[in-house]
Amino acid sequence: MNSREDDEALAVAAVAALTRQLELTPKPGLPDPRDLRARVTRRDLCSLRWSARALTPGLAAMAAAARRTGRATPGLRAELGSIGRCTEHSVALAGGGHRGALWALGLLVAAAALDPGARGAEVTATAKRIAAHADRRAPRRPSRGSSVSAQYGAAGARGEARAGFPHVRRALDALATARAAGAPEPRARLDALLTVMSTLQDTELLYTAGPHGLRHVQAGAREVLEAGGTSTRAGRSGLAALDDDLHARGWRPGGSGALLAGALFVDALPVTPA
């Protein structure tokens, strides 16, 4: 094995994690294998999977940058930002989407490359050290997410990363708990998604639904979990109701979906070249 193969393996594993998140169903308010053309995203599963593949070269480049640098330095953070912006352009040409997932997966892939023996919370701790540095090459104009974060005092994607991805860790714990209880893998993943939704200050939801809408979604996710999660009849009934409600309102908890993809990537470590 060589470093290039290792970098590509990490990128492929990250895209596979994103694809597993896309294919999970039913996801309240989020794209899934059902009739996506009738949903707010206006994208079908094939186009979302195609554009997800466009992340692969950029994620491999991020892994290579981390491995080459060897430490969580300001220079590495700036290089990751530059690669990420180029990758966003490539993904836009392939159909768009996945911006939040690119941010989370990019930092986690870089962390995994920087510390190949790390697992679980060790990976998120390394990502925290990378994210602690400012991206000195970033555009001066604020993004929609940063504007919403400033308006409502939410942590946002940047705050989540600088805190060491607490919701990725929560999702990993939820996966472990559900699996230990004998839940089928899709239901374990849905419980992990709902765990993230129940507390995340999702800036995409804040933008479309405001603080009241965010609290409404968080409460709905908690109700499903308190009913026993998606492995119980009551939990599945609550999930279906929450799904109908969010799609009727056009509310999309995109941040939760991106962080679930990050958790599924970390959960799959270690990865080996094909």
Rank of each mutant, 00 (worst) to 15 (best):
A72Q: 10
A112S: 15
T230N: 05
R222G: 03
S198G: 08
A221V: 05
N2F: 00
R189A: 14
F265D: 11
R249V: 03
A183T: 12
E23Y: 00
A63L: 08
L105G: 04
L193H: 11
R129N: 08
A132S: 13
L205V: 15
A155I: 00
G254Q: 06
L80Q: 11
D244V: 05
P184M: 12
A192P: 03
K27R: 02
Q218N: 14
L114H: 09
A52L: 07
V196W: 03
G106R: 08
P26L: 10
R68H: 07
L107K: 04
P273C: 03
R179E: 13
E223T: 14
E88K: 10
W103Y: 15
A14C: 10
L30T: 06
A61K: 12
R34Y: 10
R37Q: 10
G58E: 07
P273Q: 01
A171M: 11
P26G: 04
H133D: 02
P31F: 04
I130W: 05
A241T: 13
R179C: 10
L225F: 07
T208L: 12
R162P: 10
G106P: 06
H89C: 01
T208D: 01
P270Q: 13
R222C: 12
A134C: 01
P116W: 12
A121S: 14
L200S: 10
T230G: 01
A104Q: 02
A61V: 04
V266L: 07
A221C: 04
A78F: 06
A132P: 07
L206Q: 02
I83A: 03
T203H: 06
I130G: 10
R39H: 12
H212L: 14
R222S: 15
A101I: 02
T199I: 06
K128Q: 15
L107E: 09
S90W: 02
P186T: 05
S256P: 08
A112E: 08
A110W: 14
M62H: 02
S149T: 13
V266E: 09
G84A: 04
Y207W: 14
H98Y: 02
H247F: 13
Q21L: 09
V224K: 07
A161D: 01
G235L: 04
Y207Q: 14
E204Q: 13
A94I: 05
G81D: 00
A263V: 00
A131I: 04
D7R: 00
L194F: 11
